[in-house]
């Protein structure tokens, strides 16, 4: 399998998981939330500054279908995560290959 083909399959799988399967995930509190509730420190949680964003809580605001709302949030998340990580990798590779790289760094091999 070529790297390109491998990458395409990987992205499609991620989109399937985040865009479709995520709807069927357990809605129970996660391990930390559960412990916080049973041990009695869940009330110390404060309102998140990003809680009113259009995708807060993995729900696309204004999309009435719960399937679509979650799926859309998942697809956007995959896209944004890929763009940010891809951009970071691009910058790092450019730095690594740049001849202007300061030669006095100990970790330069």
């Amino acid at each position: 399998m070529t790297t390109k083909r491998f990458a395409i399959v990987g992205v499609l799988l991620a989109l399937l998981v985040a865009g479709v399967l995520s709807f069927y995930a357990s809605k129970s509190p996660d391990g930390l939330q559960h412990v916080a509730e049973t041990k009695g420190f869940s009330q110390t949680e404060t309102q998140h500054s990003t809680a009113n964003g259009p995708l807060a809580g993995y729900e696309a605001k204004g999309v009435s279908s719960p399937h679509l709302s979650k799926g859309l949030a998942g697809v956007v998340g995959v896209g944004v995560t890929g763009l940010v990580m891809g951009g970071l990798v691009l910058v790092l590779r450019r730095q690594a290959s740049s001849p202007a790289d300061p030669p006095h760094h100990d970790d330069d091999r």
């Binding site: 998981v17 985040a18 995520s22 995930a25 357990s26 809605k27 998340g77 995959v78 890929g82 990580m85």
Partner: peptide, 10 residues
């Protein structure tokens, strides 16, 4: 991308 997607599956 895969870790993001995987973390949506509780």
């Amino acid at each position: 991308v895969f870790v993001f997607a995987g973390q949506m599956i509780n």
